[in-house]
Simulated scan of single mutants.
Amino acid sequence: MSNMSQRMKIQRLQDAFFVNSTRFFAFFVLALLSGIIISLLYGALPSIKAFGLGFISSSDWNPVTDQFGAWPSIRGTLISSAIALVVAVPISFGIAIFLTELSPVWLRRPLGICIELLAGVPSIIYGMWGLFVFAPLFADHVQPWITEVTTGVPILGPLFDGPPMGIGMFTGGLILSIMVIPFVTSVMRDVFEVVPPLLKESAYGLGGTTWEVVWNIVVPYTKTGIIGGIMLGLGRALGETMAITFVIGNSMNDMNSLFDPATTISATLANEFTEAHGELYTSSLIELGLLLFFITFVVLVLSKLLLLRLNRNEGSHS
C-alpha cells in the first residue's frame, strides 16, 4: 500500500511539473510577443510624435530633410504579396491536385520531394537568380510582349505600360510567387490526402468526373486547410526581404505601372537600416517594422475570423 501511495505521489508531482512547464512556455510566448511590441513602440515613439498618422499616408522619404513616409513601402508590400498569391495559389492548387489525384504512384514521391526542396532554397539565392537570370530574360522576351498584348485594353493597359527594365514590382511579385508555391502546395497536398477515400470512391461510383469529385468533395472537405495554406503563403510573402530586395528596384517614387521599380517595408529596412543616422531616421525605420508587424497581425486575425465563420456556417448547414 505504501508503494502505491508513493507511486501516486510521484505521478502527481510529474503531472504538476508537466502542467506548470507547459503553462510557463505558453505565457513565455505571450511575454515574448508583448516584449517585441513594446520595444517596437518605444523605438518608433520619436517618429510617431513627429509625423503622427500622416506617416502612413505620406510618400516623402528624404533623410536629408528628415521627412519620412511609409506609403510607398506599404503599397509595395501589399501589391507584391497580392501578385504572389494571384500567381501562386492556382499553380499550387493544380500541383496538389495532380499529386493526390492524377499523378502515377511512381512519380508522386519524387515530385513531392522536389516541391519540398524548393522551400529549403535560401531566399537570397532566389534573389540572385531573379536579378541575374530571370530579370534579363523577362525584360527581353516577356515584358515587351505583355505590353503589346495589353495596349489599349482597359485597366490592363495602364498596369503593364512602361519600359521593359526587367526589375520592378511585377518581377518582384513573380519571384515571391515562386517562393510561396512550395509552402502552399505542401499544405494543400497534405490536407487533400486526409480526405476519406470512401467519399471520393462514392462520388466516382455515381459517375462523377475527376473535376467534379475535386470541386464538390475534396475542396469542401478541406476548405479550412486550403485557406490556412494560403494564409501561410501570404505571411511568407509579406515578410520576405532579400529576394524582393534584389529584384523590385528599391524606389520610393510613384508607380505608374507594375513594371516600374518600387519597394516594400522589408526591402526598405534592409537597404537603409545600416545607413540610418539620427534618432528620427532610425525611429522611422522602426515604425516601418511596427507597421509590418501590424499588417501581418491583421491578416492573421482576418484569416482566423474567416475560418471561424466557415466552421460556423458548416455547422448550421448540417
Score class of each variant (00 low, 15 high):
residue 173 G to E: 10
residue 130 G to D: 05
residue 128 M to W: 07
residue 161 D to I: 02
residue 148 E to F: 12
residue 155 I to F: 12
residue 155 I to Y: 05
residue 127 G to N: 06
residue 154 P to R: 08
residue 154 P to Q: 02
residue 130 G to T: 09
residue 143 Q to M: 15
residue 145 W to G: 02
residue 168 G to S: 08
residue 135 A to E: 08
residue 162 G to M: 12
residue 165 M to N: 12
residue 161 D to V: 12
residue 165 M to E: 14
residue 130 G to V: 12
residue 112 G to I: 04
residue 155 I to A: 07
residue 125 I to M: 05
residue 139 A to W: 03
residue 119 A to N: 05
residue 165 M to K: 12
residue 142 V to N: 05
residue 160 F to C: 03
residue 146 I to W: 08
residue 150 T to A: 13
residue 127 G to Q: 04
residue 139 A to N: 04
residue 173 G to R: 11
residue 150 T to S: 14
residue 133 V to L: 13
residue 141 H to C: 09
residue 110 P to S: 05
residue 177 S to A: 15
residue 132 F to G: 00
residue 147 T to Y: 07
residue 121 V to G: 04
residue 115 I to N: 07
residue 135 A to Q: 07
residue 143 Q to N: 06
residue 134 F to Q: 11
residue 171 T to D: 08
residue 113 I to E: 10
residue 142 V to I: 15
residue 114 C to Q: 03
residue 124 I to H: 01
residue 171 T to E: 11
residue 150 T to P: 07
residue 167 I to P: 10
residue 158 P to W: 14
residue 109 R to F: 08
residue 124 I to W: 08
residue 160 F to G: 05
residue 170 F to N: 06
residue 175 I to H: 03
residue 126 Y to C: 05
residue 130 G to M: 02
residue 161 D to Y: 11
residue 177 S to T: 02
residue 110 P to T: 06
residue 164 P to V: 12
residue 151 T to P: 00
residue 147 T to W: 00
residue 110 P to V: 13
residue 153 V to I: 13
residue 171 T to W: 04
residue 149 V to G: 03
residue 150 T to L: 04
residue 121 V to P: 01
residue 136 P to E: 02
residue 130 G to K: 00
residue 143 Q to I: 15
residue 143 Q to V: 13
residue 157 G to W: 07
residue 120 G to F: 05
residue 117 L to S: 08
residue 112 G to M: 06
residue 138 F to D: 04
residue 124 I to F: 11
residue 111 L to C: 10
residue 175 I to Y: 00
residue 116 E to I: 08
residue 177 S to M: 13
residue 151 T to E: 08
residue 163 P to M: 14
residue 142 V to W: 14
residue 129 W to V: 15
residue 160 F to M: 11
residue 118 L to I: 07
residue 132 F to I: 15
residue 140 D to R: 10
residue 125 I to Y: 02
residue 119 A to P: 06
residue 154 P to A: 00
residue 132 F to W: 10
residue 175 I to M: 15
residue 114 C to P: 00
residue 156 L to E: 00
residue 176 L to I: 09
residue 141 H to L: 14
residue 132 F to L: 14
residue 111 L to Q: 03
residue 157 G to Y: 11
residue 113 I to F: 13
residue 175 I to E: 08
residue 122 P to S: 02
residue 141 H to P: 01
